[in-house]
């Protein structure tokens, strides 16, 4: 495994590197990249190392007027340690907290988890349930915004063009009327740490004082070529009173979630198992 590294330290150096290099990959925490290059070396590859870029928007977390800003270089560890994430977006906290190991969480980044576009990306799955918006930057310095639901195209494929980099994302603040948030990341795997999700389910459900669901995001991981948002399941919940959901409605919700699943059989589980478990844990949302 051999490659050259460039280490841009400012945004303009970063943009210049993107313009200059032809065969390049971005390296953030490099936890996936090094594994990939070890398996499949690329000749004359340049890794544009993002970890030295000094830019508070790229690396930081910030509360904005109607949203929460998460720089692409935010590490899983930083997310775990952030009080606001823990309080307002528990699903994100849990997805980061259960990711890999303590050591990996120190370096693995939100941007890396998204741009790797693994079907089992835990942070990506949680962010989908949170209806995040992705902020992209191209080599000319132009910003654009794309909803996370449109970000993934397939296994390890995103809408990012060669001259674009994910800069950060925004998570909409919980609604003013929200009284209680049911926010959880359910990760199914064999081990309790150092595990890659066999199936995952992320949900972020906002409920007002009367118990009426006023916001709902549900996403599934490791069940389809990309993490997927179960939009019809989220829509199904809006307006329902959380205390009055019937058994039949729970079943209906689970079926709606599972309808988004197109799992494969691989070493870790069969497609049958993935669907079966997804159905079971979907039913458990209101248990």
């Amino acid at each position: 495994m051999e490659f050259n590294i460039v280490n841009p330290k400012t945004k303009s150096e970063l943009l210049r590197a993107i313009r200059k290099e032809t065969t390049f990959r971005f390296g953030a925490g490099c936890t996936d990249l090094l594994m990939e290059l070890k398996k499949k070396p690329v000749e004359n590859l340049v890794v544009i190392n993002l970890s030295f870029v000094v830019d508070s928007r790229f690396t930081g977390l910030k509360k904005l007027a109607k949203s929460f800003w998460l720089g692409a270089m935010t590490t899983a560890h930083t997310m775990v340690m952030n009080e606001q994430i823990k309080n307002d977006f528990n699903v994100l906290y849990e997805s980061a907290h259960n990711l890999a190991s303590t050591q990996i969480r120190q370096v693995a980044t939100m941007g890396g988890n998204l741009c790797t576009a693994s079907p089992s990306g835990d942070i990506a799955c949680a962010l989908m349930a949170l209806d995040a918006s992705c902020h992209l930057l191209n080599d000319a310095g132009v910003n654009s915004v794309v909803n996370i639901h449109d970000f993934f195209l397939g296994v390890r494929k995103t809408i990012l063009k060669k001259n674009e980099v994910l800069y950060g994302l925004t998570i909409p603040t919980n609604k003013k009327q929200t009284k209680t948030v049911y926010s959880k990341f359910i990760k199914i795997g064999t081990r309790r740490s150092m595990e890659c999700s066999v199936v995952s389910l992320a949900y972020h459900i906002q409920v007002n004082e009367e118990g009426v669901i006023i916001g709902a995001g549900i996403a599934i991981g490791a069940s389809a070529p990309t993490v997927r948002s179960a939009l019809s399941a989220s829509g199904f919940l809006i307006g329902k009173n959380i205390h009055l959901i019937t058994e039949k409605e729970k079943e209906e919700l689970a079926c709606k979630i599972v309808s988004y699943a197109e799992p494969i059989t691989d070493l870790r589980a069969t497609a049958w198992y993935r669907k079966e478990v997804l159905l079971n844990i979907s039913k458990s949302i209101f248990e």
């Binding site: 190991s101 309790r192 740490s193």
Partner: peptide
């Protein structure tokens, strides 16, 4: 994919 258990287990 060879699932040795960890301290957490």
């Amino acid at each position: 994919n060879y699932k040795m258990l960890t301290a957490a287990d």
